[in-house]
Amino acid sequence: MFTSFLLQLLLFSVSLIPNSSAQSAHDTVTDPTKRAEYAFTTLQTWYNASTGIWDSTGWWNSANIMTMVGNLAKTEPKNQRLQKLAARIFANTVMQAPAKNPQPGIENEASRGQDVNKTFALSNRTDPEDWLDGFYDDDLWWALAWINAYDITSNPKYLHLAEGIFAAVTKAWPTRCGNGGIFWSWEEEYMNAIANELFMSTAAHLANRMDEEDRKKEYVAWAERTLDWFLSSGMINERGTINDGLTEDCENNDRTTWSYNQGVILGALVQLNKATPNPTYLALAACIAKAAIIELSDVDGVIHDICEPECGGDGTQFKGIFIRNLQILHEAAPDDAYAEVININAESIWVNDRDGNAFSVNWAGPFVRPANASTQSSAMDALVAAIAVH
């Protein structure tokens, strides 16, 4: 076992670009890859090698940061330093992070008396139960992070871990609304958009990574079943955007149209269309994306959530998730409107929301102190997306 000090040396000895706190030093940087790499160097000052997660933010947020790290690595497949650093972060996090799970094992209370599927349980901290905290959206953020880690490293243990997490979450199906969908948490008190979008996205992602046709079909079936339920649930409002969840009477609760609820479904539909092509999937994604752009953008085209600047530890992450998935949709179905939104937001982040190479919650500016790993990684989602559309 490495000591904390040795882990820090291991993880940071391959830093990409020397960091600088001087604002003027990087004012003239226009290359999107260099911008993202400067931001990444700052992000890693929050990475705690002894815990495997990023200080200053939470459990599910660190899963999202993992996904962003993977996406950055995908933009530079020939950059061996970046590939090795990403792989080391994945390897360290899979070993260390379970100790930081805020509620390990709590989901077992909801499944007492049921047969617990141990098919995917592995050794070396890749037992899916290590990653379950009672909130199914948290669980699935980690599943998507490990799928991305598999994409970068081709290490099957990450894919098996994601499968195991997904298998555990299937026990939350169905809810009391329409005999389908999953609950938000083990307490089974709320049916919301994000948990079900993530469930569909994870199933579709897994489908596209299965060699065995029967297993692929099983994941496709889960994704299609979830989409059918989601579309019938009423969470998509008359404006074409998605509200937070359902009432106890199984009606749209008309709560906030958070940016991440408009984003995760885009990536889910792209992956589902890849697994089983259907022209309605990308058409639906386009409708949601364009409705969201209208609803979330200010007059300059910068994306906002209603909570700004007091978004707490969770809301600061949402916009990056939207832009990340908008870029995924743009890659599958290119549209100048998507590229414009990505570029406008990445540019505004760099010009208006930067202190040194740190970024805060308001992408339109001014910089709001303090920045943290959540605000930094969310901004980085936009910077990384800009690399892809550059």
Rank of each mutant, 00 (worst) to 15 (best):
F135Q: 08
D137V: 03
D138Q: 10
D138K: 05
W142M: 03
L144T: 00
L144K: 00
A145V: 04
A145Q: 06
A145Y: 03
I147M: 02
N148C: 14
N148V: 15
Y150E: 05
D151V: 10
N155T: 14
N155S: 11
P156D: 12
Y158V: 04
L159R: 04
L159I: 06
H160L: 14
L161F: 08
E163H: 10
G164S: 08
G164V: 07
G164M: 07
F166H: 09
F166Q: 04
A168Y: 14
V169G: 04
T170P: 12
K171D: 10
K171L: 13
K171F: 08
K171R: 14
K171T: 13
A172V: 05
C177V: 04
C177R: 01
N179E: 13
G180C: 07
I182A: 04
F183T: 05
S185F: 07
W186L: 14
E188T: 10
E188P: 10
E188Q: 11
Y190V: 15
M191I: 15
M191H: 15
A193E: 13
A195H: 08
E197D: 12
F199K: 10
M200S: 00
S201T: 14
T202M: 02
A203F: 00
A204C: 07
R209I: 07
M210S: 05
E212Q: 15
D214G: 14
K216H: 06
K217F: 12
E218Y: 11
T226R: 01
T226C: 00
D228I: 13
W229C: 02
F230G: 07
F230R: 07
S233V: 03
G234M: 03
G234F: 03
M235T: 12
M235Q: 09
I236D: 00
N237L: 12
